[in-house]
Amino acid sequence: TTVHLNGVTYTFPNPEEARKFVEKLAKTLNLKVEVHNGTYHIE
């Protein structure tokens, strides 16, 4: 599972880890999250 954040790409072997990371980040920084083909894009 891949996460794109400010031009940096993070790869998680575990989709659940990626989801938790994204949710925590989005909540902390009040960001918008979009998912395209299983890839998270955070703005």
Rank of each mutant, 00 (worst) to 15 (best):
T1P: 06
T1H: 07
T1E: 04
T1D: 06
T2H: 15
T2V: 12
T2D: 12
T2Q: 13
V3A: 03
V3K: 00
V3N: 00
V3C: 13
V3M: 03
V3E: 00
V3F: 03
V3R: 00
V3Q: 00
V3S: 00
V3P: 00
V3I: 04
H4I: 14
H4S: 07
L5V: 12
L5W: 15
L5F: 15
L5Y: 15
L5H: 07
L5Q: 01
L5N: 01
L5P: 00
N6D: 09
N6E: 09
N6M: 13
N6G: 09
N6K: 07
G7P: 01
G7W: 09
G7V: 03
G7E: 08
G7F: 07
G7S: 07
G7I: 04
G7H: 11
G7C: 15
V8K: 11
V8D: 08
V8Y: 12
V8L: 10
V8R: 12
V8G: 05
T9S: 11
T9M: 12
T9N: 07
T9V: 14
T9W: 11
Y10S: 02
Y10R: 05
Y10C: 15
Y10L: 14
Y10D: 00
Y10I: 14
T11G: 06
T11H: 11
T11K: 12
T11E: 11
T11N: 09
F12R: 00
F12Y: 02
F12K: 00
F12W: 03
F12A: 00
F12C: 14
F12L: 03
F12I: 01
P13T: 09
P13M: 10
P13I: 10
P13Y: 08
P13F: 10
P13E: 10
P13N: 09
P13D: 09
N14G: 10
N14K: 05
N14I: 05
N14Y: 06
N14T: 10
P15C: 14
P15N: 11
P15E: 09
P15S: 10
P15Q: 10
E16M: 09
E16R: 07
E16V: 10
E16F: 09
E16D: 12
E16A: 09
E17T: 12
E17F: 09
E17L: 13
E17Y: 11
E17D: 12
E17P: 01
E17V: 11
E17R: 10
A18P: 00
A18K: 01
A18T: 05
A18H: 01
A18C: 14
R19L: 12
R19V: 10
R19K: 11
K20F: 08
K20D: 08
K20A: 10
K20R: 10
K20I: 09
F21S: 00
F21P: 00
F21H: 01
F21W: 13
F21T: 01
F21L: 03
V22Y: 02
V22Q: 01
V22R: 01
V22S: 02
V22H: 01
V22K: 00
E23W: 07
E23P: 00
E23S: 05
E23F: 09
K24P: 01
K24T: 11
K24Q: 11
K24C: 15
K24E: 13
K24V: 13
K24W: 14
K24H: 13
L25I: 09
L25F: 03
L25D: 00
L25H: 02
L25P: 00
A26L: 12
A26P: 02
A26M: 13
A26E: 08
A26R: 07
A26K: 11
A26C: 15
K27S: 06
K27Q: 09
K27P: 04
K27H: 07
K27G: 08
K27F: 09
K27A: 10
K27I: 06
K27R: 08
K27W: 05
K27D: 06
T28K: 13
T28I: 14
T28G: 07
T28A: 12
T28M: 13
T28V: 13
T28Y: 14
T28L: 14
L29V: 06
L29Q: 08
L29D: 06
L29I: 08
L29M: 10
L29S: 07
L29W: 03
L29K: 08
N30W: 04
N30R: 06
N30D: 09
N30G: 12
N30E: 08
N30I: 06
L31W: 04
L31N: 02
L31R: 02
L31Y: 06
L31K: 03
L31G: 05
K32G: 03
K32D: 03
K32W: 06
K32I: 11
V33A: 02
V33N: 00
V33W: 13
V33R: 00
V33S: 01
V33L: 05
E34W: 13
E34N: 06
E34H: 14
E34M: 11
E34A: 07
E34G: 03
E34I: 14
E34D: 05
V35Q: 04
V35E: 05
V35W: 13
V35A: 02
V35L: 12
V35Y: 14
V35G: 01
V35P: 01
H36Q: 06
H36L: 12
H36K: 13
H36T: 05
H36M: 07
N37V: 01
N37K: 03
N37E: 07
N37M: 03
N37I: 02
N37W: 03
N37A: 03
G38R: 01
G38V: 02
G38C: 14
G38E: 03
G38F: 02
G38S: 02
T39R: 08
T39K: 07
T39I: 15
T39L: 05
T39N: 15
T39A: 14
Y40D: 04
Y40K: 03
Y40W: 12
Y40E: 03
Y40Q: 04
Y40V: 12
H41N: 04
H41C: 15
H41D: 05
H41M: 07
H41G: 01
H41R: 03
H41T: 07
H41S: 04
I42T: 04
I42K: 02
I42D: 04
I42W: 03
I42A: 04
I42C: 13
I42G: 03
E43M: 14
E43K: 10
E43I: 15
E43S: 13
E43T: 15
E43H: 12
E43G: 09
